[in-house]
Design a protein around this nucleic acid. Structure first.
Lengths: 347, 347
DNA sequence: ATTAGCACTCGTAAGTAAGGAGTGCTAATT
DNA sequence: AATTAGCACTCCTTACTTACGAGTGCTAAT
């Protein structure tokens, strides 16, 4: 456990701030001027040498100024930083953008990601409140004529998933009715996960009473069901990658883009929902592509509707205190908005 | 009108090929070795000077080798190039990827873009057969419970558009029936454009018989309708931008990405559907961002279902003959597949 | 414990030199 | 009249200097 003196702490803080703002290694002379304490550059050099021994700051070459190490950022985030109260104007933007009327959870969550990435100039991804507690609350098959049928699945959270299928022969509503009624009678109220589990065993047997060849129907039902049960990330501010990425390596940028396009890989990046707001810096992120970046994740809580995640990806040299403040604001506003939204479907 | 001698034509062809393959300006000495004619480098230099006078090739500096100018590429494409017969393996890939079963036009068109960009390492965008001749063939309002209603619109081409709405009070199917029947009676069979036009005038008046406050419903209907009537591009191979873009200008790359994300701007880029296969090179494209790239567009014809477009964006130095061959293949396969798909909804 | 002074390191930018690919032109050759 | 050999010239690329400045660590004085 590292403990720093007051002065060392001040110096580390100043180094983090300067480097974050200017992007250049910071030297003893420039620190002299801005530190609130009256000491010479030599003293600061001595202190910096100690901070370097502790592994909190590093040099880019033998006689350069210092930049914070991963460990240094960590210490700063854990012990020095105070979350900045979110700017009134920013809060207005957030509240206004979430104030409108939404017809889908996904829209709210996507909108949040877009706003956050706009406010920060970084990249955001969001995960809606987890679906694992969702229950099936309705299933419809709507014949559209022309050999087409739309399957619609509704959950108790008001989530709607639908898909259109082309079927060999025209079918009227009457023929589908017993199947739909079977689903409604037997499966409504069950968690989606359970329904999904039964799909390969019990359901086909039971369904055999109503249909001579249930396979086609099961494909349709299963397809909509798994779509509804799958986790989906929304990624906002991909273009911002160009702003904060090391520009000399286009290959790396391409890999990052590719990573952000594969939402299944993002689940590993974010990791299990943990504390309220979590800061992971550099190689603390479990993905080598991101070892030069920082990731702030906030878990937001929507009561019985589960938890969602909003995450912010940016350079290790980011203004953490402002960012953490912003994440807190989103955490609150998003929870509030979603509770509000869910209220419709709760009673 | 420029006319080249046989020998000049051979030289221009060789310059285009070499530069496209190697990326370096090509000089007289290297040309001596690969040309099928026996002449000295001095003769070639003389011929090159003439080609330069004609504006077909340019130097990058006073004593450099030559690269084709826009005009040079144009002459090459118009008079020299022979479309390459598409590689058997490539054709297999195309046919196989379009061989599966699709439930939506958009999926077919998107898949095509992905495959083409994969085969070429460039960027593709596709536009489905134009919707302007689409007619409304059905409209449904499906109450989902929990204050939600799904509106579904079907066209005579089998296109399905849907949207979910949250409404203040729960509604049963019976209450919606007269409205839906009104739509079915009065509007089915009309082109979407006509329906859209009537939306602000005739429809509200007529509808007033069935609903005391038709505004909410009209919003819903209008929203789905305009979604169905809007053109949408699918863009494939965005990541390939990293491969063929000038790497020294990240800003430009960012702008390109941004352009590709705004599908309404792409309509201008592609321009009006013209000849079968159209090659636009450099500043011939009506967008300054693309003045260093080439765009090949192919219009494919799906009989009475209209025309769609598949477009390929790449560097000006691209292997045109292979690309044009590929575009031809997609043009044919896509038309065939879509005709096949539409057959369901035609009878 | 702090500080002034100084030798030393190293990145950056600018300047110089050498090598090489390629050109245009002139005069000789076919 | 067309082609070619020869040559001076251009200019890009690369590598090698040089100078400068910001910054450090260390020593000795305060």
């Amino acid at each position: 456990m590292i403990t720093l003196t007051e002065r060392q702490s001040l110096i580390l803080k100043a180094i983090v701030r300067d480097y974050t703002e200017g992007g250049n290694p910071v030297g003893s002379k420039s620190l002299v001027q801005e530190l609130p304490i009256k000491v010479s550059s030599a003293t600061i050099r001595n202190e910096m040498a100690r901070l370097e021994d502790l592994g909190l700051i590093v040099k880019t070459h033998l006689s350069s100024g210092r930049i914070p190490s991963i460990k240094g950022y960590r210490y700063y985030v854990d012990h020095i930083l105070k979350p900045e109260k979110v700017d009134g104007k920013d809060l207005k933007v957030i509240q206004h953008s979430l104030g409108g009327e939404f017809h889908k959870i996904d829209e709210i969550v996507a909108q949040s990601a877009d706003i956050l990435s706009q406010l920060t100039s970084y990249t955001t991804f969001t995960l809606r409140p987890e679906l694992k507690d969702s229950r099936l609350s309705g299933f419809r098959l709507v014949p559209l004529g022309n050999h087409q049928v739309m399957a619609i699945l509704v959950t108790n959270n008001g989530d709607v998933e639908n898909q259109t299928f082309t079927i060999p022969s025209d079918i009227t509503g009457d023929e589908l009715e017993p199947v739909v009624r079977f689903i409604d009678d037997q499966l409504v109220g069950l968690p989606l996960q359970d329904v999904l589990r039964q799909l390969t065993h019990e359901i086909p047997l039971k369904l055999a009473q109503y249909l001579q060849d249930p396979d086609g129907f099961l494909d349709i039902f299963g397809s909509v069901l798994s779509k509804a049960a799958s986790e989906r990330f929304y990624v906002g501010g991909k273009l911002n990658l160009f702003n904060y990425t090391e520009q000399q390596s286009p290959k790396e940028l391409q890999s990052l883009y590719s990573l952000l396009d594969q939402t299944d890989r993002l689940a590993n990046v974010i990791g299990p929902p943990g504390q309220q707001i979590q800061v992971r810096i550099g190689n603390e992120i479990t993905n080598d592509l991101l070892k030069n970046y920082s990731l702030i994740t906030a878990t937001y809580d929507v009561d019985q509707h589960g938890q969602g995640v909003i995450a912010l990806l940016g350079p290790t040299a980011m203004p953490y205190s402002r960012m953490i403040g912003l994440m807190g604001a989103f955490q609150r506003e998003l929870a509030r908005k979603l509770l509000d939204y869910y209220r419709y479907f709760d009673e």
